[in-house]
Design a protein around this nucleic acid. Structure first.
Lengths: 333, 333
DNA sequence: AAACTATGCGACAAAAATTGTCGCACAATA
DNA sequence: TATTGTGCGACAATTTTTGTCGCATAGTTT
């Protein structure tokens, strides 16, 4: 059993193609995990495993480097249940237009596994599987900005390892990128963009917290030094403080609004909040009451419903919408 | 090596908890795949594997049933690269409020793997990892409807295997569920709801294509019969024909609109379409030209921007927005 | 350029494991 | 009650695995 377990471990230690690992490192990691095995045996294992799995070895230079081929399918253990497979497939479809292409590519081998599983499941009638799942976005599709795979890889690595990194960053509207040294604090996916939250310290002097859009990073270079981080930084608080347009993180308002019948239907299925109340009015409208966060998204959503809704409370929100409506009319007049 | 491969295969054949598999079935499946091994050996393998992996055996009844414990983490081979891990983590965070809870639960073991990996990666400083990734939705959050795990499992299974199923379905606004026999054609994720596209054939007579919202299915029962499907059904065409509010699937319009400066900024990063053009006007506004699909989502998005935009073309779209604006003003007046 | 170290690998014998087989006990089923 | 299916202990033959040694050669350091 030790043999089986060790081989499985070797398979998991081997990275996907651009990366590689040598037998000595494997032996070391094994030892760290309490598995004592002779170096020679690992060499033998690798040789054997590479015959049954898509594992290649770079023998050009001396500590041989082993890696899975770039496109080797990922295999999950335990295997997915059919419902997990379906959920996975839906997620994959959903993600396609949510994530920048390069990042989606990172996940492809894992998604492909779910696809492969389905075809394998016996039923030959099911090669047409991809034609059976679709997702329809709720909001206007916008094209996600381009993020070079290299940039994302370096940022992910640095964030994961808690290391500093340097970037050539091109500010909005400027031509020439500038070199920045940054300490990563977190990463935020918003709209279709990805931002690195970090402190900039070109002179190893901590400065304010910045947001850096990944798609404006021209090149990222890992620095092999631990990242400095300001005392008591908290990503949730940072977001709540309004960094991404949310007015408040915690404060909520009690929304009262009259919806026309057909606009209210969706709220029956997908309510605004836990305690949402729908009351049919005599005139056919529906009074909606719910406690929601006071955000920009709320305003956008209410506006998007157009003339089929009338917000009653809170009063200042009502005023805001009224102003917007008047402004719209004046534009089109 | 055969031994290793066989054991790996056994691990993959064992399902997650509610399901189970007995040694005879495993032996049969092995044989089908060309691996000839004595039944007895498989019994021995199972016994040994269960000592090193979270595998349990139901020994109450005689063909013993083996399964992974419900919460056993999934392990991916080859292991994920750091950037895949990060992408995965972002996706998981994003999904939390997109999918019904039950479905999200299906994926949890797979997500947990990515989480576990990160902690394992050596750096102890990184237990605070979950605090480093956040997603901020673009649109108003609505609570996803509840879908019983049983319902989703049966639907997924039937769709996957191309089988009929029967459901107790409660129509919107009605109290009592009704029994329907349906042939699944596809599944669509829209807004926060999930719909099964299918034909209903209570008397084995094919009828029109229906949409069934999963959260209105009270109970689903698999029927062990192949599904009937109408000739030449195509999910994309079905969607394009307007089933989910999209006006057209293929027809696009040339949108011309004046955006106020701050409203136009986001289009620099995430354009509406490939060929989008932004032109700064003398008065500070930005003229946006893009070719987009003529959908409900587009209208909602344009309305959501409120008074900071003026649509110039196409004229009928301009009229539509104008009407909505007038209607809004009249409501608030 | 020389000395030194690290790595890969063939060979070999001892040790360990795997394998097929048989028989018995007992549960499930007819 | 008879019959079939399943689990499991035991055993010996066979195969695999393991640690070790030595040598050749690739990298690295001095």
């Amino acid at each position: 059993m030790t043999t089986f377990y060790r081989n499985l471990m070797i398979l998991r230690l081997i990275p996907r193609y651009p990366d590689k690992i040598d037998s000595t490192t494997i032996a070391m990691l094994m030892k760290r995990d309490g598995i004592s095995i002779h170096h020679r045996s690992i060499q033998r294992d690798l040789e054997k495993l590479s015959q049954s799995f898509p594992i290649t070895c770079d023998k050009l230079h001396k500590p041989y480097g082993w890696s899975w081929t770039a496109d080797s399918p990922s295999l999950d253990i335990p295997a997915m249940t059919p419902s997990a497979v379906l959920a996975y497939r839906m997620m994959a479809d959903f993600m396609t237009d949510q994530f920048p292409k390069e990042i989606h590519d990172q996940l492809k081998p894992h998604f492909r596994y779910a696809n492969g599983l389905m075809n394998q499941t016996g039923n030959e009638t099911f090669t047409e599987w991809p034609n059976k799942v679709r997702t329809i976005g709720r909001s206007q599709p916008l094209l996600p900005p381009n993020i070079p795979a290299q940039v994302f890889a370096v940022v992910a690595d640095s964030l994961l390892e808690g290391k500093r990194l340097s970037v050539f960053y091109r500010k909005r509207g400027e031509k020439e990128p500038v070199l920045w040294f940054v300490n990563p604090l977190g990463i935020v996916l918003h709209d279709r963009m990805i931002s690195l939250i970090c402190t900039v310290d070109n002179n190893r002097q901590l400065e304010d917290v910045h947001q850096i859009s990944l798609h404006r990073i021209v090149e990222a270079m890992p620095q092999n030094e631990p990242a400095l981080s300001p005392e008591g930084f908290n990503l949730d608080e940072y977001i709540a403080s309004g960094a991404f347009g949310k007015h408040t993180g915690d404060e909520t308002i009690r929304l009262k609004a009259l919806f026309e019948q057909d606009a209210a239907i969706q709220l029956e299925d997908t309510p605004l909040s836990e305690g949402q109340q729908l009351t049919n009015q005599a005139d056919g409208n529906v009074l909606v009451e719910a406690t929601v966060a006071d955000t920009r998204q709320l305003r956008q959503w209410l506006l998007g419903i157009g003339g089929r809704i009338e917000v009653l409370e809170p009063l200042d929100l009502r005023e805001e919408l009224k102003e917007q409506a008047i402004k719209m009319v004046s534009k089109y007049a």
